[in-house]
Computed example of a mutant assay.
Amino acid sequence: MPPRSARTSTEAPRLSLRAPSNLTRVDDPVLLDGEHREGELYARAVLDAADLAGITLQECLLQGVSLDGTELRGARFLECSFEDLFAPVFRASRTSWRETSLRGTRWGSAELYDSRFDAVHLDGGKLDFVNLRGARLTDVLISGCIIGELDLTGCTATRVALQDCTVGTLTLDGARLRDTDLRTSSFRTINGIDGLRGAIIDDAQLLLLAPFLAESMGLRVEA
């Protein structure tokens, strides 16, 4: 019988997301930095290279929107839905995301460092490089994504799950993980193996991680 203090289960992300409804469709939107927009639908809009730093979108739906090189530093996305978001360069450092879903996302380089994610679902995207250095992730589910490189250096993650994802390089230097479930996902390379403390993996992943764990401990494995 385990000690009373032992933890015997994993807490999954707590999500109860609802799609925005009763929206006003806005064609050819003109959005300004720092403004607050609520209850709007943007479909197939091209907002490339716009300066939208500090903007707040609340209960909005963005479908097929292009945000290549758009400045979103410090923006806030509250109870929003993003579908087929496209951005070879996604500039969104220090942003806040709350009760928001992203589906079919296509990002080349995503600058999301020092951002905050609370109750967010990222589903079915193809992402080349995701920079989440110093970010705070709480109740986040990433599912069915292909990610070239995921950088979680200095990240704090609580109740985070990667489900059925394929990740090329996972970087975890200085990461602080709690209830972070990596089962069912695959990784080609992991940097900062010490940052895995607090993660949950399966038996197959443990075998694949063995060489990295041995290297981090200075072990020599010889037949």
Rank of each mutant, 00 (worst) to 15 (best):
Q205W: 08
F86L: 10
G195K: 05
I190A: 00
T189C: 06
A119F: 01
T138R: 03
E149A: 13
D114H: 11
L207K: 15
G192P: 06
L162M: 06
E149N: 12
E215H: 13
T153K: 06
E99M: 03
S186D: 09
P88R: 13
L209D: 04
E99D: 04
T138Y: 01
A135E: 10
A161P: 00
D151E: 03
F90G: 12
D164V: 04
C155E: 11
D179C: 00
S143P: 06
G104I: 06
F212H: 07
T156R: 13
D194V: 03
L112P: 06
I190Q: 02
L208C: 10
L206Q: 12
G108M: 12
G198H: 02
D203G: 13
S96M: 12
F187D: 01
R188E: 08
D128H: 05
G108V: 11
R103P: 06
D123S: 08
L172T: 07
R98E: 15
L122E: 12
A92P: 15
T95M: 12
S109D: 02
A110F: 11
T158F: 00
T153P: 01
R188P: 02
D173G: 14
T105N: 02
G198T: 03
D128K: 09
C165Q: 10
V89K: 11
D151R: 00
Q163V: 07
F212T: 08
E215S: 13
R133T: 14
N131I: 02
G192Q: 08
T95C: 15
D123M: 07
C155G: 08
T180Y: 00
R178P: 00
L150S: 01
V140L: 10
K126H: 14
A175I: 02
D151A: 00
G192H: 08
T189Q: 12
T169D: 04
T95N: 09
W107G: 02
A87S: 09
G104S: 03
Y113Q: 14
S115R: 14
R94G: 13
G195A: 05
L152M: 14
D179Y: 01
D123Y: 08
L132I: 04
N131M: 11
D181F: 07
D203C: 10
I193E: 09
I142N: 07
R91I: 09
S109C: 03
I190S: 05
I201A: 10
L182A: 01
L150E: 03
S115K: 13
D118M: 03
H121Y: 04
C145V: 06
R103M: 13
V89M: 10
I193S: 12
R94L: 15
A199L: 04
R197Q: 07
A135N: 09
T171R: 13
N131C: 06
L162E: 01
G154D: 03
F90R: 13
K126A: 14
R94N: 15
V140K: 02
D118P: 02
D202P: 10
T184D: 09
T184H: 06
P88K: 11
A214Y: 04
L141V: 05
S109K: 04
G168K: 05
R133A: 15
I146D: 15
A87E: 05
G168D: 04
G148S: 10
T189S: 07
S109W: 04
L152R: 12
D114W: 07
R176H: 13
P211H: 05
A157T: 01
C165F: 15
F129W: 12
R159Q: 14
